[in-house]
C-alpha cells in the first residue's frame, strides 16, 4: 500500500526537467511549463523529492 505520493509546488518549480528524467515510474510530465506528477502512476518512492535542486517537491498523504 502506498502511503505517500509526491506533489510539485508549481510556485517553486524552476522547470529543470530532472525529476522527469529520474522517475522510474514515468509519472512526471511538464504541464503548462512546470513539472506535474500523475498520482495514479506515482509509487511514492521519493527519488524526485531528493533530487529537486530547489526543494519544490513534497510528500502528501495518499487518499
Amino acid at each position: 500500500m502506498v502511503r505517500h505520493k509526491a506533489k510539485v509546488n508549481r510556485e517553486v518549480c524552476l522547470s529543470c526537467g530532472g525529476c522527469i528524467a529520474i522517475c522510474n515510474q514515468d509519472a512526471i510530465r511538464m504541464v503548462e511549463g512546470k513539472a506535474h506528477i500523475n498520482d495514479s502512476a506515482c509509487i511514492g518512492c521519493g527519488i524526485c523529492i531528493n533530487f529537486c535542486p530547489v526543494g519544490a517537491i513534497g510528500k502528501v498523504d495518499a487518499v
Partner: peptide, 22 residues
C-alpha cells in the same frame, strides 16, 4: 534531459540518481 521521445520509442532513458546532477 527529459527525453520523452526516447521513452515513447521504448528506449529506457530513465537516469539513476547516481547518473544525474542536480
Amino acid at each position: 534531459v527529459e527525453s520523452n521521445v526516447g521513452k515513447w520509442a521504448g528506449i529506457d532513458t530513465t537516469l539513476k540518481p547516481k547518473d544525474i546532477e542536480s
